[in-house]
Design a protein around this nucleic acid. Structure first.
Lengths: 171, 171
DNA sequence: CTCGATTCCATCACTGCTTTATATAAGTTG
DNA sequence: CAACTTATATAAAGCAGTGATGGAATCGAG
């Protein structure tokens, strides 16, 4: 697909935006608002770059969560993923139909269902992570060394953003 | 909302995962695979924590792009957001109906429509960014100083992930 | 200048997913 | 034991995305 980008009306350069990725440095370096915008852009980039026609973000995140946290109930997963219970029921039905998760009765509560990731599910996750890592490695390869180092240095902190909130959602 | 988390079957602790956010350090610190996983989790967290019932991710990202890059055509935006043209037509119709964007004929091509963000759209964006920044500030406030510093230090690099790819999508 | 090819995007038909509402079974509590 | 709560499947409705299609505008070769 080619697109003919027509001439656009002149837009004045937004004040205070230097050349570069568009993150202005405040008096003491980037502040939280800058970080927030940057995270948002990075997340948006991830969403676009690695769109998966088969499984949407919630399904994949659910699979990841099961892989990481072990078997969970339908309602737990709905809470974790901030989606409705019937919606989660649907997602899990699809994942189960694809052989990526297993549905077992919960031995401690006759009403409940335990969802467990299958070996095929684990393989799917691993393959996806590997693909993503390759893609990111390639992308990072074209960044300056400083940026690469800063990203790698923030790895733990990025993961930490999500960690306690995942616990809160269960209480 | 309370959820009764039933007892789960014992899951063996995955080998090599220390206490903490779950990011193992390799021989030379986190590698790209770790970073990839951490980015994925952070993005997933952002999606869940700040879900917006009114505007989905593509709509908001489109609005941001218009704010940042100036007026664009429907097809350009569809390419940028990796979505179909009729889908983007729908998104823009909704955004226009809400007064957040304006649709004008492109003076240089009678077939084309130029989409411009409105003042109300800019306000909406600003409010959303402010909310996100507040939320992130609160979240970061409970992280160790090291993590906070690492995140702020990676601000520029996070934004840089998205930057050239946005340019490529237009060629 | 003409006309075929291409571009731009609205519209349509269809599909799939999410939500709220509801029903049924299992579990809890006084 | 009855009333209430919990767990989740199911149904109905709504919404948004996709591929296909078609009309209008533009481009470029002859």
């Amino acid at each position: 697909m080619t697109t003919s980008a027509g001439p656009r009306p002149d837009e004045p350069e937004p004040a205070g935006v230097p050349d570069g990725p568009g993150v202005p440095d405040g008096p003491d370096g980037p502040d939280v608002a800058d970080l927030s915008a940057a995270l948002e852009r990075a997340a948006s980039w991830l969403r676009r770059a690695l769109r998966n026609p088969e499984w949407n973000a919630v399904a994949l995140s659910t699979l990841d969560e099961l892989d990481r946290g072990g078997p969970r109930r339908v309602t737990e997963l709905a809470v974790l993923e901030r989606t409705s219970q019937p919606g989660m029921t649907g997602i899990l039905a699809r994942l189960a139909a694809a052989g990526l998760v297993r549905r077992d009765p919960d031995p401690s509560d006759g009403r409940a269902t335990l969802i467990t990731v299958t070996p095929a599910g684990r393989e799917h996750i691993a393959a996806r992570h590997a693909e993503r890592a390759r893609f990111l490695a390639d992308r990072i390869g074209s960044l300056p060394d400083d940026d690469r180092r800063a990203l790698l240095g923030a790895t733990r902190a990025l993961a930490a953003l999500a960690a306690p909130e995942e616990e809160e959602a269960l209480s």
